[in-house]
Nucleic acid binder design. Structure first.
Lengths: 133, 133
DNA sequence: GAAATACATCGATGAATGTCAATGCACAGG
DNA sequence: CCTGTGCATTGACATTCATCGATGTATTTC
């Protein structure tokens, strides 16, 4: 289980060390100063994009909603296919994406697979957005 | 802490009125109670997914990061193409997606187009995630 | 062991998406 | 008016993605 998001939450603002060298980019007449401040690193952007992608699907949003609104904060696949009007393989596929992104937790009990929210996952994602307001 | 969300807060939890009629779905032996609580409506899910999709791309995340970290909290396209190592049409395309999602604001001044964050947009998106922790 | 159930995985297909080169458009300067 | 600059739009292409049917796997029940 390595699905915990990185501590040290950094917003969308600058996070990584500066590229520090922009060869030949100072003599042209520019519209506004490039601000020198480095952007988020490409790696960090890729990592965050994967998590946001997991949530950026209407059916996966409804899955998370269903699970979080469920009685014991968990739900099995059989209870999720009907409300979404999707086939069982499709629901399983979406759930896997959410698990791989560290948003959902999967626990097999008997024949059933129970999915629940990973405690701090959504909060962590939200933090990325908030610190950039 | 059974703080089940009541109508009022609108996170990923239930938001829309219940479908109220599930013909023939009560007699089968189920693994867990379907919880009766309605999920987020399909329309709302679609709307939110569009916003998350806009942020769920590494280059667009870096764009938002660059703009938010910029001097006057705004940037023109010419300053965004180089750090991302993308062509100008591609950057324009990404910026349009962010504008259409209501995350960025576009203002044309002279020959340049200045992009800035829409004040509450990211906070609002973050709120959707937080209220579902 | 055989049958049934709940779920995952595989393979295929149509749709959506990211990227670029080429082009168009608006504005500024000569 | 003509030229150059900054940006948007178009069309094309390759990749990714969402969905489904078919099949595989694990577990319970008989």
């Amino acid at each position: 289980m390595t699905t915990i998001s990185e501590p040290g939450t950094a917003g969308l603002a600058a996070t990584e060390p500066a590229p520090a060298s922009l060869p030949g980019a100072t003599e042209e007449g520019r519209c506004c100063v490039p601000s020198g401040t480095p952007a988020m690193s490409a790696d960090r952007a890729e990592e965050l994009a994967k998590q946001f992608k997991a949530v950026a699907d209407p059916n996966r949003l409804r899955l998370v909603s269903l699970i979080s609104a469920s009685a014991a904060n968990e739900a099995c696949v059989c209870d999720l296919t009907e409300p979404l009007d999707l086939g069982q393989p499709t629901v399983s596929h979406h759930l896997k994406i959410l698990v791989d992104a560290g948003i959902l937790h999967r626990e097999k009990r008997g024949v059933w697979a129970y999915y629940s929210l990973v405690p701090g996952a959504l909060n962590s994602l939200a933090g990325v957005l908030i610190e950039t307001r």
